[in-house]
Design a protein around this nucleic acid. Structure first.
Lengths: 241, 241
DNA sequence: ACAAAAGTGTTCAGCCTACACCCATGC
DNA sequence: GCATGGGTGTAGGCTGAACACTTTTGT
C-alpha cells in the first residue's frame, strides 16, 4: 500500500466484505484479528479507486484478501450513521507497531486519512473456505474463519454488519445459490441440502427439499454416483447452464 | 448554498431521493426539471454533512425540497458504477445561466466539485403530494409530480433509480404502509385499498383485501362513517399505536 | 321496495409439511 | 436376506383467489 494510493481513492467511503465460507458442512465468516494487545476483530475492508465501480472494487478487495477471483458478490446495505470512526483503534495499532510502520511504507498521512469518518458499503459473498489463502494487512495479526455462533467482538458496527449480511444471504439464497461456487461441479442432492442447512442453520426434510429444488428448474440430473456404500446410489446433479 | 458548505460535505457521495407522492388515487414521483434548453429531469439530491448520519441527511434533503418533516425514509441501494458524473449537464446549465450564478452566491469551485464522480445512496419515501411545497435549486426550472407511466427522461441512471425504488417500495409495503402518512387519521378500508392499488398499479378484490389487512393486526376498527350516500356505511379504521 | 356499496361466508386450487412406503446397493 | 440410505407418493393444513350471498343505507 503506497501513500500515493489514498489520493486515488474516494474519500471517506469504504467497502466492508462479509465473506461467508463453507467448510465441513458449516457456515463461517472470515475475520482478521487486529494486531493489538486486547482481542478485537474486524471485517476485511478496502476502498474504492476513482476509475473503478463499486462492484468492481468489492471484487478486487475480496481477491486481495482471499486470492479468489470471479466471486459473486452482492451489495446489501450502507452503514453511515455517526459517529462512525476507527480513530482510537488505529491510533493504538500504530502506537504498538511503530517498528513496522516504516518497513511497510506507511506514513502518518495515511493513518490520519484512515481516522476520518467513513461511510461503508456492505457486500457479502460465499466461497469455499478451503480455497482461501488469506493475505494479512498491516493491521492484522491473523485471519481465521469463525462460526457464526462464535463470532468474536468486532470494531464499530461490524458485528451488526455481519448480522445484516447473513440476513441478506438467507433472503436471496434461493435465487443466488447457483452463483456461489462452493459445491463441486457435480454434486448430490444431499450435498446441496447440507449447504442449505449450514446457511439457514436448521434441518430440512430430504424429500420436501428435493421436490423444492427440482421445482426451481435449475438442476440437471446426471448419472448416479456409486460410492461403494451399502445403499441406493444417489443421482448427481449439475447447475443448468 | 454557500461555497463553504462543500468543505463540510462528504466528498463524492450524494443521496438521491425517490419521493413518491399520493394524489388523486395515483402514485407519482417528484422530479425537478433541469433549467436547460432541452428537456431533462433529475431526482432531488443532496449531500451528507460531516456531523450527520446518512438517514438524517436523507431526511434533511427531503425536508429542504418538500418542506415536509418527520417522513419515513428507507435506504434501498447504492449506485456507484463508473462512469457516473454529471459533467456535461452541469457545464451546460452553468453556461446558460451565467447571469444568475453570482446572485445565488455560487462559484466555479462549487461547480467543479459537482462535476466529480459521485456514488449515490438511494432512498425512497411516500408522502401526501398535496402537502408538498417544492423548493427550487439553482439547477431547477420547475418541480412537478409525474405519474410512473409518464416519467420523463432523467440524467444518468436516475430512471433506473426510480425503477429500483419502486420495486423496493412494493417489496416492503406490507410492513411499512403504516409508517407513511398519506391517509387521514381515520380512513375507510376502501381508501386503504385505493392506496394499495395505486402503489401496485393493479386492482385488488375488496373482500380478500379486507381479510388480508385485518389479519395483519395493525388496524383498529372504529365507528362507522355516515357519508349520506345511499349505501351501507363503512367502518373507519386507525393504525394501532 | 329498490339500488348501491359494504361486509361476510364458502369453495377451490396451489403450496408446504409430515408421514409412510418403495427401491437400489453391498455385505 | 437384510440393513442402510436414496428416492417417490400421498394425505393434511395453511394461504390466497374467486365466487356468491347478506346487510345497511338513503331515496
Amino acid at each position: 500500500m503506497q501513500v500515493s494510493d489514498i489520493n486515488n481513492y474516494i474519500n471517506q467511503v469504504s467497502i466492508d466484505c462479509v465473506i461467508f465460507g463453507y467448510q465441513n458442512q458449516k457456515l463461517k465468516v472470515l475475520a482478521p484479528k487486529l494486531i493489538l494487545k486486547g482481542d478485537l476483530w474486524a471485517l476485511p475492508s478496502g476502498f474504492i479507486q476513482q476509475e473503478e465501480g463499486i462492484d468492481q472494487a468489492a471484487a478486487r478487495i475480496l481477491e486481495e484478501r482471499t486470492g479468489i477471483k470471479n466471486v459473486f458478490l452482492d451489495q446489501f446495505h450502507v452503514f453511515g450513521n455517526v459517529p462512525r470512526t476507527n480513530n482510537d483503534v488505529i491510533a493504538k495499532i500504530v502506537d504498538l507497531n511503530q517498528d513496522r510502520v516504516k518497513d511497510v511504507g506507511l506514513d502518518e498521512t495515511y493513518f490520519e486519512w484512515l481516522k476520518q469518518r467513513f461511510i461503508s458499503i456492505g457486500y457479502y459473498a460465499l466461497v469455499n473456505a478451503d480455497e482461501v489463502v488469506p493475505t494479512l494487512t498491516f493491521f492484522d495479526e491473523s485471519t481465521e474463519w469463525y462460526e457464526l455462533e462464535n463470532l468474536p467482538k468486532m470494531v464499530m458496527d461490524h458485528n451488526e454488519i455481519v448480522a445484516k449480511g447473513l440476513e441478506a444471504l438467507r433472503l436471496n439464497f434461493d435465487n443466488q445459490f447457483t452463483r456461489f461456487k462452493v459445491l463441486p461441479e457435480k454434486f448430490t442432492m444431499k450435498e446441496l441440502q447440507e449447504l442449505y442447512e449450514a446457511v439457514y442453520d436448521k434441518p430440512f426434510r430430504s424429500n420436501n427439499f428435493q421436490k423444492k429444488m427440482l421445482d426451481l428448474n435449475v438442476l440437471e440430473r446426471l448419472e448416479k454416483k456409486f460410492t461403494g456404500a451399502a445403499n441406493k446410489a444417489p443421482y448427481l446433479y449439475r447447475f443448468k447452464a
